[in-house]
Design a protein around this nucleic acid. Structure first.
Length: 949
RNA sequence: AGGACCAUAGCUCAGUUGGUUAGAGCGCCACGUUGACAUCGUGGAGGUCGGCGGUUCAAAUCCGCCUGGUCCUACCA
C-alpha cells in the first residue's frame, strides 16, 4: 500500500469494477428494500443537495444490501419541462440565432432529444462519482416510452372519473414563458410599491351619504382598471348602503359598472370601496363568482393591453352584452407602460386623489423571473379534493411516516387547503395532453386519436387535432414510484419493490412532489408510494447562506472531491454571471476563503462529512473543516491498515483461508477491542435504523481512531515486537488485528465505499474471509457473548495508569521519551494483579524503565502523584521535579475536588433531595462524595509532604 | 397575521425517558519525528447551555413569556 491515502487512484477504478460486475442490481433474495431516487433534472449538474441526498440513499442501500435484503435503488432522470425547454432555446438561439418558433414544434423537440442524448449523461456520470450504487440497468427517464404509457393511462382514467377537467380559469400566467404555472412555482417577493387612489364618478347623478359624486378606490395596479366590472362595498357599511345596485362610470373607458355588496370590501381600509377586476385578480375572481359579474379580460398573452376586451361569464362563455371597447390609446402597451399612462391620464382628468408608497409583495415566476399575471385562459386541472382525502389518511394512520415527525404538520396544513392543480403548460417539451378536438371544439380524451374515434364513434375522416399543451412535469414525476417499476403492466418488479421503503427528499419539494405522489399513487395502485419519508434540510454554505450562483458561494461537490486551484474556482464563480458587477466582490471573497484553492479530499471524505452533518430536521452549514477532518480520518484508516498488513501479511494470523494455524492465545487488549467492536456494531446499526447518520459516523470514528488506533494498535506492538510474548499470543494479536479491521471495513462500507473496498481486498484473506467484494459481505452483527466487561475494566485501569504517567510528564516538564521509574501503591489486590499481568503494556506505552508495587506506602519517596481509583501512581521526584510546579498543580487539583465536594454536600444536605430522590440516585451521590473526598485527602497529604521540604 | 424550527466552547455540531465532573471535530497553547500515520502523537486552555420566570428534591433537557435568527403559509383592493 502507498504510504499516503490517495483517493483519486482508487475511486474510479472500483466504481467501474462494481458496475461491470453488476453489483448494484437486486440480489433477488431476501426481504425487498427499495428506494426511488428523486429524479434529477436531466439538464442539470450535481449540486451539493444532490450529493448530500445521494450519500444518504447510497448509505441506506449499501447497508440493507449487506444485511441480505433484496435491494433496489431505482435511478432515473426527469425531463423537467420548463427548465429543459429554456436551456435548449437558449442554446439554439446562441448557436443558430433562431427561436423555437423559427424551428417549429417538431424540429425543436428533435433538438431537445438531440441535446438530451448528447448531454443528458452529465449528471449520471457525476452520480457515479459519488459512489451511488444505483441499478443502472433499470435507468428510467420521465419521457421514455413506458412513462408515456403510464402518463396517458393516468390522465385518461382521471378524466373518465371527472377528476381531470378543462376550463377557462384564472391562472398564474408567465408572460415571458407564455405558459401557466402552478401556485407552487410562484415566488412572492417583497417590494416597495405605489398605491394610487382614484375617483370613480357615480352615474345617474347619485351621491354618497356624504354628498360626494364619486367613490374612491385604491389600487396598486391601475392598468387593471380597464377590466373592472364592479365596485364593491361592504354590505354592513352604512356609508354606501344606498349605493348598492347603483352604477359608477368607469373612468377612461366609460363603461357603466355596478356597485355591489361583498364582504371582501373591508370597511376599515381606505375609503371602504374596492374596484373589482375578476379577470385579473384572484380575490376579485371570487367576488365575481359570488356577485355574478362578467369576467373582462384586457390583456394579451404578453400582458399587453388588447384593442378590444374579451368578456366571459363564469363558465367561460363569451358574453355579448358587455361593451368590449377600450380606449385606443392603450392598445398594445405593455402592462407597466399602460400603468404609467393610465395614472397620468387619471391625474389629468382630476381623478387621482392620492398616491401612497407602500410595501407589498409581488408574484414572480421562479423560472423566468417575470412578474406573474393572473390571466383568464383555458387550462386542464386535477380536482384534488377526492384525491387528497386518502392521502391525508395514509399519513394520519401511519401507513406513511415522516422522519422527522414534525413535517407531517406541514403536510397536513397544505393538504387540507388544497386548490385544484393546474396541470397544463403551454410548452412544447413534455407529455402532450391526450385530448383531441374536432372543428366544433368538442373534446375527446383517449390514449390515442384512434381510440378517441373508436370510443366516440367518430368518422375516420373527421379531422381531429391534438391539444397543443403539455402536462406539468410534476404530473409525470408524481407517478415515479410505480411508473419506474413498469406500471400499468403488473410486473414482477412492481409486486416486489412497491411500495418503496423510504423516500429521501428535501422539505422544499414536499408539496411539489411528495404530496402529489401520495395522491396519485394511492389512486392508481391502491398502495402508498413509500412507507417512510426521510426529510433532510438544505445544504448551505459555511456561513449559513443559501448557495447560489448570484451570491457566488456555490461549492461543486466534484471540486471538493478532486480539488480545484484558486484561479479556476474564481473563474467558475464569476464567469457567465447575470450581474457581472458583483464579480469583483465574489472574486475577493473567494480568494479570502480559499487562498490555496481547494485540495482534493476524495468521495469517501465528502460522503462522511455529509453523514456527520446529517442531523435531524435542520439545514446543514457545510463545514470545510470537517471535510478536512474526515479526509484525515480516511488517511488514518489507511495507515492503520498499512500497519496491520505489515505485521500480518505472510504471517500466521490464526485464521488464514487455508485453515492452517497454530495455537492462539488472546491478550487482554485483544479481548477488549473485540468487546468494544461488538458495542460499536450495535451502535452503528441502531443509528442507521433511526436515520441518525451523524451518530453512526461518530460511533465509527470514535472506535477507529480513539480505540483501535490510539490504544489497540499501540497495545499490539509490545506483543508483536517483544520477545517475551509467546508465539500463541503473537498469533492471537495478529488474528485480532486483522479480524477487527475486516469487520470495521464492513461496518464502514456503506458510509465510505471506496477506501473500505480497497483495503478489504487485502485484509479479508488474512482474516479468513472469502469473497469478491466487501459490497456483498454480511453486515456485522454484534455478538453480546463477546462483550467482556472485565477486559473493559482492566483496560480502563491500564489507560488510567498510562495517562497518569503522561500527565505527570507534561505537568512536570519531563521529556516524553525519558525512561521513568514508576511506583504503584495503596490500591487493592486487584490492582496488584493487574500490574503483574500488564507490566509489558505499561512499560512500553508509558515509556517506563521500571514499574513495581510499593508495599509500604509510608516509605514512598518524594513523588509526583496521580490517582487511579484508590491506587496511587507515583513518579519519584528525585532530580526531576520542579517543587513549585508540583505544588501549583496540586493546589489546582485540590481546588477542583473542593468544588465537586461542595456541590455534592449541598445536594445531600438538602433534606427533600434525600427524601424524594430515588435511592439509587442518592447512593450515587454518596459514592461520588467519598471518592472525591479520598482523592482530596491524597492530594493534600502530598501537598503537605512537598511543602515541608 | 398564523405556524414551524433553531439558539450549548472562537467555529460547525452531538447531548436518548429530567439525575453526566455538559461532550466531539476543527481552531488555539505547550511539548514531541529512528520502525502505520505531521493528513501525526502527547498534554492542556476554553462553556453562568440566548434572557427572565415557573414546575420539580433535581432543568441544557419539561412549561410560559421575551429577545435574536431561519423558513413556510396567508394577506396586502
Amino acid at each position: 500500500m502507498d504510504k499516503t491515502y490517495q483517493p483519486e487512484q482508487i475511486e474510479s477504478r472500483w466504481y467501474e469494477r462494481w458496475e461491470a460486475d453488476n453489483r448494484f442490481a437486486p440480489s433477488g433474495e431476501g426481504e425487498p428494500f427499495s428506494i426511488m431516487i428523486p429524479p434529477p433534472n436531466v439538464t442539470g449538474s450535481l449540486h451539493m443537495g444532490h450529493a448530500f441526498q445521494d450519500t444518504i440513499m447510497d448509505t441506506l442501500t449499501r447497508w440493507r444490501r449487506m444485511q441480505g435484503r433484496n435491494s433496489l435503488w431505482q435511478v432515473g432522470t426527469d425531463h423537467a419541462g420548463i427548465a429543459t425547454q429554456m436551456l435548449v432555446e437558449r442554446k439554439v438561439a446562441a448557436e443558430e440565432g433562431k427561436s423555437r418558433h423559427d424551428l417549429g414544434r417538431e424540429a425543436f423537440i428533435d433538438k431537445v432529444w438531440e441535446w438530451k442524448h448528447e448531454s443528458g449523461g452529465h449528471i449520471t456520470r457525476q452520480l457515479r462519482r459519488m459512489g451511488a450504487s444505483v441499478d443502472w440497468s433499470r435507468e428510467r427517464f420521465t419521457m421514455d416510452d413506458g412513462f408515456y404509457q403510464a402518463v396517458q393511462e393516468v390522465f385518461v382514467r382521471l378524466y373518465e372519473e371527472d377528476l381531470v377537467y378543462r376550463g377557462k380559469r384564472l391562472v398564474n400566467w408567465d408572460p415571458t414563458l407564455h405558459t401557466a404555472i402552478s401556485d407552487l412555482e410562484v415566488e412572492n417577493r417583497d417590494q416597495q410599491g405605489q398605491f394610487w387612489h382614484f375617483r370613480y364618478p357615480l352615474a345617474d347623478g347619485v351621491t354618497t351619504e356624504a354628498g360626494e359624486d364619486h367613490l374612491v378606490v385604491a389600487t396598486t395596479r391601475p392598468e387593471t382598471l380597464l377590466g373592472d366590472s364592479a365596485v364593491a362595498v361592504n354590505p354592513e357599511d352604512p356609508r354606501y348602503a344606498s349605493l348598492v345596485g347603483k352604477f359608477v362610470e368607469l373612468p377612461l373607458v366609460g363603461r357603466r359598472i355596478p356597485v355591489v355588496a361583498d364582504e371582501h370590501a373591508d370597511m376599515d381600509k381606505g375609503s371602504g370601496c374596492v374596484k373589482i377586476t375578476p379577470a385579473h385578480d384572484f380575490n376579485d375572481y371570487e367576488v365575481g363568482k359570488r356577485c355574478g359579474l362578467p369576467l373582462i379580460n384586457v390583456f394579451s398573452k404578453d400582458a399587453s393591453v388588447l384593442e378590444r376586451a374579451e368578456a366571459f361569464d363564469l363558465q367561460g362563455r363569451p358574453l355579448a352584452d358587455v361593451d368590449p371597447s377600450l380606449p385606443a390609446a392603450y392598445a398594445g402597451l405593455g402592462r407597466f407602460e399602460a400603468r404609467a399612462r393610465i395614472v397620468a391620464d387619471m391625474e389629468a382628468a382630476g381623478l387621482l386623489a392620492q398616491v401612497e408608497t407602500v410595501s407589498n409583495t409581488l408574484p414572480y415566476g421562479d423560472r423566468s423571473g417575470d412578474v406573474i399575471e393572473p390571466l383568464l385562459t383555458d387550462q386542464w386541472f386535477v380536482a384534488v379534493e377526492e384525491l387528497a382525502k386518502p392521502a391525508i389518511a395514509a399519513v394520519e394512520n401511519g401507513d406513511i411516516e415522516f422522519v422527522p415527525r414534525n413535517y407531517e404538520n406541514m403536510y397536513f396544513a397544505w393538504m387540507r387547503d388544497l386548490q385544484d392543480w393546474c396541470i397544463s403548460r403551454q410548452l412544447w417539451w413534455g407529455h402532450r395532453i391526450p385530448a383531441w378536438y374536432d372543428a366544433e371544439g368538442n373534446v375527446y380524451v383517449a390514449r390515442t386519436a384512434e381510440e378517441a374515434r373508436a370510443k366516440h364513434g367518430l368518422a375516420d375522416d373527421l379531422a381531429l387535432t391534438q391539444d397543443e399543451d403539455v402536462l406539468d412535469t410534476w404530473f409525470s414525476s408524481g407517478l415515479w414510484t410505480f411508473g419506474t417499476l413498469g406500471w400499468p403492466e403488473p410486473t414482477e418488479a412492481l409486486k416486489t419493490f412497491h411500495p418503496s421503503s423510504v423516500l429521501v427528499t428535501g422539505f422544499d419539494i414536499i408539496f411539489f412532489w411528495v404530496a402529489r405522489m401520495i395522491m396519485l399513487t394511492l389512486k392508481f395502485t391502491g398502495e402508498v408510494p413509500f412507507k417512510q419519508v426521510y426529510v433532510h434540510g438544505l445544504v448551505r454554505d459555511g456561513q449559513g447562506h443559501k448557495m447560489s450562483k448570484s451570491k457566488g458561494n456555490v461549492l461543486d461537490p466534484i471540486d471538493l472531491i478532486d480539488g480545484i486551484d484558486l484561479d479556476s474556482l474564481v473563474e467558475k464563480r464569476t464567469g457567465n454571471m447575470m450581474q457581472p458587477q458583483k464579480a469583483k466582490a465574489i472574486a475577493k471573497a473567494t480568494r479570502g476563503e480559499f487562498p490555496e484553492g481547494i485540495e482534493p479530499h476524495g468521495t469517501d471524505a465528502l460522503r462522511y462529512t455529509f453523514l456527520s452533518q446529517a442531523t435531524t430536521g435542520r439545514d446543514i452549514k457545510f463545514d470545510m473543516g470537517r471535510l478536512d477532518g474526515y479526509r484525515n480520518f480516511c488517511n488514518k484508516l489507511w495507515n492503520a491498515s498499512r500497519y496491520v498488513l505489515m505485521n500480518a501479511e505472510g504471517q500466521d494470523c490464526g485464521a488464514s483461508l487455508d485453515g492452517q494455524s497454530g495455537e492462539v492465545e488472546l491478550s487482554l487488549a485483544d479481548r477488549w477491542i473485540v468487546s468494544r467492536l461488538q458495542q460499536t456494531e450495535a451502535q452503528v446499526t441502531r443509528a442507521l435504523e433511526d436515520y441518525r447518520f451523524d451518530h453512526a459516523s461518530q460511533a465509527l470514528y470514535d472506535f477507529v481512531w480513539n480505540e483501535y488506533c490510539d490504544w489497540y494498535l499501540e497495545l499490539s506492538k509490545p506483543v508483536l515486537w517483544d520477545d517475551a510474548a509467546s508465539e500463541a499470543a503473537k498469533r492471537g494479536t495478529r488474528r485480532t488485528l486483522v479480524r477487527v479491521l475486516e469487520a470495521v471495513l464492513r461496518l464502514a462500507h456503506p458510509m465510505m465505499p471506496y477506501i473500505t473496498e480497497e483495503i478489504w481486498q487485502r485484509v479479508a484473506p488474512l482474516a479468513g474471509v472469502a469473497g469478491e467484494s466487501v459490497m456483498t459481505q454480511p453486515w456485522p452483527v454484534a455478538d453480546e457473548g463477546r462483550i467482556d466487561e472485565t477486559a473493559t475494566h482492566d483496560i480502563e485501569w491500564l489507560k488510567g495508569v498510562i495517562v497518569a504517567v503522561r500527565n505527570i510528564r507534561a505537568e512536570m516538564n519531563i521529556a516524553p521519551g525519558k525512561p521513568l521509574e514508576v511506583l504503584l501503591t495503596k490500591g487493592s489486590e486487584a490492582d496488584r494483579e493487574r500490574l503483574a499481568a500488564n507490566r509489558l503494556f505499561l512499560s512500553r506505552l508509558a515509556k517506563l524503565e521500571r514499574i513495581y508495587w510499593l508495599e509500604a506506602p509510608d516509605q514512598a519517596p518524594l513523588s509526583a502523584t496521580q490517582l487511579v481509583g484508590d491506587m496511587e501512581v507515583l513518579v519519584p521526584m528525585a532530580g526531576l521535579i520542579d517543587k513549585d510546579a508540583e505544588l501549583a498543580r496540586l493546589a489546582k487539583e485540590i481546588d477542583k475536588q473542593d468544588k465537586l465536594i461542595g456541590g455534592i454536600e449541598k445536594k445531600l444536605g438538602n433534606e427533600s433531595f434525600v427524601a424524594k430522590a430515588p435511592e439509587a440516585v442518592v447512593q450515587k451521590e454518596r459514592d461520588k462524595l467519598s471518592d472525591f473526598a479520598a482523592t482530596r485527602r491524597v492530594l493534600v497529604e502530598q501537598r503537605d509532604k512537598i511543602a515541608s521540604l
